[in-house]
Design a protein around this nucleic acid. Structure first.
Lengths: 357, 357
DNA sequence: CTTTAGCACTCAACCTTTCTGAGTGCCAAT
DNA sequence: ATTGGCACTCAGAAAGGTTGAGTGCTAAAG
């Protein structure tokens, strides 16, 4: 059943107003809008209809209407108008985007902080592996007597390191030999291609450093098998700025006890292959603690078989259009930064320069 | 002016009770304690005295007493009884202490999470440098055309890496040459010892890879100069579990807007050289937003010129004894783990096995 | 058939008032 | 010095009253 244009207009107006005021919207408020020229009574009739259809809800009889989850869903899918970032916003996004670190993990965590700051909501980032991971380079560094640092570079420019302590001592030369062997025999292999046979062969060629081999291999396999990088979740406290948590701190705590890193690391899987953005509106979240919580997530490219996801968590009543616009800007420019030559270069300005507030 | 034993006993009782109930403590409640055998009237007189001395406060005339900041201070300095971890607690601490990662930063962040979990309060960890840092090893790894990963190992077993993208392309052999030069000339030097002359010399010997040199040096200097590692702050939401924030989510948010990572990274400096534990009680925190917030911090050893700090943040009304005991257990065992041979080995059991709840 | 003005009705939010009881301070007796 | 007793205080809960934004419905007008 299709909505009339007028119904759509009213639904959109209700979502827009409610999102910014957090107060139920009454018929008068809508009648007062500039491009509405029918009376509040008419609007009341339409609102009754929309409520019938399950798109609006009434907190109590004598209150205005608020969008139901289905209402939000319809708004997102059909009614939402592209939000154009203002010049000011673009400028501060650009400023923010000058990432300081170039360590991959730090970069991801920094991105999360930025997004959280720009949206004033909690945000997370995860890197997920698209294709099978392989090791690119091994390095063994002497860190002291019996203490060795293993540096492992994986596809996707991810660098992992581990401190290995050994009861036996190994010489510099032996380490060099072992890293040569590792680099010769293990690079560009996926986890499955690393067989026991291969392991035996390496152990034999490793000489005095052979006690290291199982430790190295275990760590390597662990890294190769892990399909997503660390989850960086920040800005949880910003949720408290939202009126829905004004007094009910416990609710916010509950949300974040549910939304732990494990849960978040599964979110990218929900992101459909087509389209870079996805919305989980209120009860579309599986966990019941999150029934009043929405997630907007967006994919961005990191290149070499890796894919990043940025997400923002907030009350169901959130400015989907604005957040989508901001996330989109991040995603676009991050993709560029992660891939193009000099990641220090600030992103090109002038994307969405037309004002609108 | 010295307190009488009875006054001390009363003050201690008030802190103990208030800490666990978060309600003002009345004279009757104290009179009802098993080892108190004087009447509530007597206690009222003593309480009036303690209030006079500024050690207790009265939220309003007809309420019980709560400790003032000065009261907490006295309690911490003189009255607090060592809390002995119960067998259960020791067991779960031991379980928690089986750290999974061996990457230094991850370990630190994991420790923070554990502490936060065990204390049910927000916690942070920072690693600070004690002695001048030096570079131990350089490594340049080809990550793709024009894309190089610099791995830098510093004193203290800290490994940093950075992705460097270059417009010109460099061969594997040239990289090898450059890392040899770097290792030969820059290792074991402090930031000050890296002079312009030295830099020139390296650039000349670097050959085709010379455009890399300034990038490498900049990164190295940056790492050497940074005096503390990342701040890992977690569990902010746990603050909301405390009754003082039951309805006043804004207050919790304020606390955490003030207590940002920069602020925390300065906290270790407050820790006096003598004694491993330090308390910042309420208004002893400089920022006025933190006037009702206390911090317990403890030092632990990481070896090789590095020192770790773990801290717990909570309302001034917190169980200082219990938290100190737990932090102490962590500190002791972490020190051992970071230093001794195999960091995988679980810490020795049987520290504080005597029950007491 | 659609729109609108008007009116009775509802109900959360706010304010005010009253009530209650935990807790104090002080005094006189032990 | 300690204690029982008593008048007093005052936050917080409970109960009642008022307000006003907002609705649904009806009947008249377009």
């Amino acid at each position: 059943m299709e909505l009339t244009d007028r119904q759509k207009q009213i639904l959109r107006a209700i979502v827009d107003i409610y999102v910014s005021t957090a107060e139920p919207v009454g018929s008068k408020a809508i009648a007062a809008l500039p491009d509405v020229d029918y009376s509040s009574a008419t609007i009341r009739n339409e609102m009754a209809e929309l409520t019938q259809l399950g798109l609006l809800e009434q907190p109590h009889t004598s209150a205005g209407r608020i969008p139901s989850p289905a209402g939000y869903r319809l708004y997102i899918d059909e009614l939402m108008q592209d939000y154009r970032l203002s010049l000011d916003e673009t400028r501060s996004l650009n400023e923010a985007l000058e990432l300081k670190s170039q360590e991959f993990d730090k970069m991801m965590s920094q991105v999360g902080k930025l997004v959280s700051q720009m949206t004033n909501l909690p945000a997370y980032t995860v890197a997920t592996r698209q294709s099978e991971a392989v090791a690119r380079h091994f390095d063994l560094i002497m860190a002291g007597p019996g203490s060795i640092i293993l540096v492992l570079m994986l596809s996707g420019d991810v660098v992992k390191n581990k401190l290995v302590k050994l009861p036996v001592s190994v010489t510099e030369a032996e380490l060099k030999l072992l890293s040569a062997v590792l680099n010769a025999s293990l690079t560009d292999l996926t986890a499955e291609e690393i067989t026991c046979d291969l392991l035996d062969k390496i152990t034999r060629s490793a000489g005095a450093a052979s006690p290291l081999v199982p430790l190295v291999i275990d760590f390597t396999l662990e890294c190769l098998r892990r399909q997503h990088g660390d989850v960086h979740l920040t800005g949880q406290m910003r949720l408290l700025g939202q009126p829905e948590y004004k007094d009910a701190a416990g609710k916010a705590q509950e949300v974040f006890e549910t939304l732990d890193e494990e849960m978040i690391s599964n979110l990218p899987a929900v992101l459909p292959k087509d389209g870079p953005v996805h919305f989980l509106v209120g009860p579309e979240n599986v966990a019941k603690e999150l029934k009043d919580t929405s997630v907007v997530m967006m994919r961005f490219d990191i290149g070499e078989g890796m894919q990043g996801t940025i997400g923002v968590v907030g009350p169901t009543r959130m400015d989907y259009a604005k957040i989508t616009a901001k996330l989109g800007y991040f995603a676009e420019n991050l993709g560029r930064m992660f891939q193009k030559t000099n990641p220090n270069m600030p992103p090109a300005l002038g994307e969405g320069t037309k004002d609108k507030e």
